[in-house]
Simulated assay, not measured.
Amino acid sequence: MSTDTPPLPAWYVISLRPRGQHGPMRRAATRCGGGIIALSPWRLQPLDDDGAQAGLQAALDAPRVLFTSPMAVRAAAMLQPLRPADGQQWFAVGAGTAAALRRAGAGEVAAPRRMDSEGLLALPGLQRLDGLKIGLVTAPGGRGTLAPALQARGGEVRRADVYRRISLAPSAHALAALRGLSRPAAVAVSSGEGLRLVMDALPADLAARVRSLPVIGASDRLLELAYALGFAHGHRAADARPASLVEAAASILG
Rank of each mutant, 00 (worst) to 15 (best):
F91W: 10
L79Y: 11
R74W: 00
A76V: 15
G87C: 03
R74V: 01
R74Y: 01
L82T: 06
Q88P: 06
T97C: 11
R74T: 02
F67P: 14
D49T: 11
A38M: 00
L101G: 03
G96Q: 13
D50L: 02
L79F: 11
L66Q: 08
D86H: 13
A99K: 11
A52H: 08
A77D: 10
M71Q: 15
A75D: 10
L66V: 15
T97Y: 10
R64D: 04
G55Y: 05
G55H: 06
T97V: 09
R43V: 04
P41Y: 02
Q88M: 07
W42S: 10
W90T: 10
G87V: 03
D49Q: 09
L47W: 07
V93I: 13
D48V: 07
P41N: 01
R64T: 05
R102G: 03
A100K: 02
Q89W: 07
S69Q: 10
R83T: 00
S40M: 12
L101Q: 03
G87D: 03
I37H: 05
A100E: 05
G55P: 12
R64I: 03
A75Y: 09
D49V: 11
L44S: 04
R103S: 05
M71E: 15
P84I: 08
L47M: 09
L79K: 13
L60P: 15
L79I: 11
L44P: 00
R103Q: 08
L60H: 15
V93P: 00
A75T: 11
A72Y: 04
Q57D: 12
Q53S: 10
R74F: 00
L101E: 02
R43G: 03
A77T: 03
D61A: 15
A62F: 03
R43S: 08
L79H: 11
A92M: 01
A98I: 12
T68C: 11
G55C: 08
A98K: 12
W90P: 11
Q57W: 04
A59K: 10
A99P: 07
P84A: 07
S69H: 09
V93H: 01
L82Y: 05
D86M: 13
D50M: 00
M71A: 15
D48G: 12
P70G: 14
D86W: 12
F91V: 09
V65W: 06
Q53Y: 02
A85F: 02
R64V: 05
D61L: 09
V73A: 12
D49K: 10
L47R: 14
A95T: 11
L56V: 00
A52P: 13
V65L: 05
A76H: 15
P81C: 06
L82N: 04
L60M: 15
G51R: 09
Q53L: 06
I37S: 06
A59R: 13
V93K: 00
A58H: 06
G51I: 06
P63Q: 04
D48Y: 01
R102V: 09
Q89I: 09
A85P: 01
L66G: 08
P63G: 04
P81Q: 05
L39V: 09
D86I: 14
Q53E: 08
A95E: 12
P41L: 01
M78Q: 14
A77W: 07
R43P: 01
L101P: 04
D50I: 00
L39E: 06
P81T: 04
Q57P: 02
Q80V: 02
Q89L: 10
L47I: 08
Q89G: 03
V73W: 13
L39Y: 08
P81N: 04
L66P: 06
P63F: 02
A99F: 09
L39K: 10
D50S: 05
W42V: 05
